[in-house]
Write a protein that binds this DNA or RNA. Structure first.
Lengths: 348, 348
DNA sequence: GTGAAAGCGCTAACAG
DNA sequence: CTGTTAGCGCTTTCAC
């Protein structure tokens, strides 16, 4: 009653459903009904309620709603790092899809190797309605927990033996196309700069490279495989190591663009030319790829789409709990020819 | 009682505080006490409770806690875009600070010009404990609302006349240093490629440029100011426009690195050299800045620190509601000399 | 079509 | 130190 007749838009006292009910002269159930649009309400009552809501500037508490309804309209999103440009697109895609459906996004950062199970917190404590996980190591128990609860989860950039739905890019196909392109340039001696071992995409790319080379009767000696860590500096170190080790490749494939950029630098520091002495290619097609000198030949990953798709999938699973989700979606990758592979500028 | 004696770690039925109380043979208040560590509890009781919690795999519901305690342990974070590398660092810093304090992060994307007031949703409906806003246009009413509620908000990269706390980088100082450096190269004819008008940092950089030039008796004709939109393509178009317009600058300052990259491209397309014919500098020092050819001279912004600091400030304000927050924190920027300004590679 | 009442799972006085 | 009792602000049967 203290609020009756007031028209403040910015009340000091939080406006609750009770205030609205009082103002509209109905019960709180009716307010809830027009809010959720489930049962039907007579047009006049609805109008009165809507008016009261507007006049009081009422905003339902998501907490109370969640507690009562057991649905939080919130998605949980766990990602290894927020500083890598590759992940930016994924985040953007997930955010977009969530926002479009009126869902909020709880973002948590958990490094690859961490066994923090931070997703568990989102799942158990924050009661998110669904989860999007990238770069998380899941135990069998984790997986079973999701399955038992029939809980919507989608993995990005990794799979767990078909036990959980996932969205990945065609790493194998992309790497294969890349290596074949290199081979078509006539190169015969190759080297690979690996990313961290934790990541399944690194493994896929490496496998694609070995197999593609083998299919062409080419070899990849152990001395021509170096370990980076997906950073520019790591790529530079790895390339230097490769050259000091006497690998002497004609073309090197770095598991991502940053490392490829570092490799180019290391090669130039040795007084050699890219691509004339050594060709370099990367993976991901992040922003910097077009700015390296020479511009980097690489494989584009549809990061935004991956995030968007994954989020759409969990959103769909939330809305239709009984439908089975597609178990794995593989998005196409695309070879982006620039000049670091030996292509001419014009040929693009 | 149904749970008594069970030792399941992954219960089908959600484990509530009641189950734990029953199991431990105490009341729920005691559970709450050991959970929150506020009142003291006898060591034995505590041990029993902890054991019960572990055995049942109990996880308190953040929803219920939030509803009862009026604190959600959640920060709201609104940012114009997630696809710009410049913002990546900010996001990472905010996430880190939040996670360190055990806070969850609700992320929302709202483009510069949008009057969506998406922060309002976080504030009113999700009941976040604090807000970090970047690139949001606030009305006077918005500001007063925060002040009336004594609500912790920190702005990043913008200020509202000292009415709300903010964290910004020293855009003016950075731009000034940059322009002075250009002048020290002996350049006399300048051009500016602006970012979007919405952003205050663009304005600051522009003002710094004008004033610094003026202080040196130099002029910046209107014909030598073009509008970009912070994208690579925008910078390229703006630079082309500048040249067609007959501006003929000796050095151009683009409001961010992406545009500078685009400008370099446009200049080369005209058959001119950077920096010999036209020097180009950018702002931000994002990843690609070191990969352009020539490498870009720019101003580093401490994006991660900005995000981290801002989050720390709201966290502090949440914990100590009575202290006054520092009204504005300005973080230093740093001139990064590479080669696009005309410096020699060695001089770094 | 609408209201009453019982929770949702916790915290926070207030008693002992 | 611990238990009892109200709520927190909604949704959801179940009546009417």
């Amino acid at each position: 009653m203290t609020l009756k007749g007031s028209r403040r838009v910015t009340p000091k006292q939080r406006v609750t459903i009770n205030a609205v009910a009082e103002r509209a002269g109905v019960s709180i159930s009716t307010i809830s009904r027009v809010l959720n649009g489930r049962d039907r309400v007579s047009p006049e009552t609805r109008a009165r309620v809507l008016a009261a809501i507007r006049e009081l500037g009422y905003r339902p508490s998501a907490l109370a709603r969640g507690l009562a309804s057991k649905r939080t309209q919130t998605l949980g999103f766990v990602i290894p790092t927020l500083t890598d440009p590759f992940f930016m697109g994924i985040v953007a895609g997930v955010e977009r899809a969530a926002a479009q459906s009126g869902y909020s996004l709880l973002v948590s950062c958990e490094p690859y190797a961490a066994k923090g199970r931070s997703y568990a917190r989102l799942f158990h404590e924050r009661r998110v309605d669904g989860l999007i996980l990238v770069g998380i190591r899941l135990t069998r128990a984790d997986i079973e927990e999701f399955q038992d609860h029939h809980f919507p989860v989608v993995l990005i950039q990794q799979t767990v033996g078909g036990l959980l739905p996932s969205v990945t890019a065609d790493n194998y196909g992309g790497a294969k196309a890349l290596v074949e392109h290199l081979i078509s340039h006539g190169y015969r001696r190759f080297a690979y700069i690996a990313g961290s071992d934790y990541t399944p995409d690194n493994a896929e790319r490496f496998r694609a490279m070995r197999e593609t080379l083998a299919a062409h009767g080419l070899d990849l000696p152990d001395s021509c495989v170096a370990s980076g860590d997906y950073t520019h500096e790591g790529g530079r170190r790895a390339m230097t190591e490769l050259m000091e080790r006497g690998c002497n490749p004609r073309a090197v494939f770095a598991a991502n663009d940053q490392m490829a950029g570092g490799a180019i630098l290391a090669i130039k520091e040795r007084g050699l030319q890219v691509p004339d002495d050594i060709a370099v290619v990367g993976f991901d097609d992040v922003a910097l790829a077009r700015f390296t000198s020479p511009p980097l030949t690489t494989v584009r990953q549809p990061t935004y789409e991956m995030g968007y798709q994954a989020a759409r999938m969990v959103l769909h699973a939330i809305e239709f709990p009984d439908e089975r989700m597609p178990l794995s979606v593989v998005l196409p990758t695309e070879l982006v020819r620039r000049e670091s592979c030996g292509c001419k500028p014009d040929s693009r």
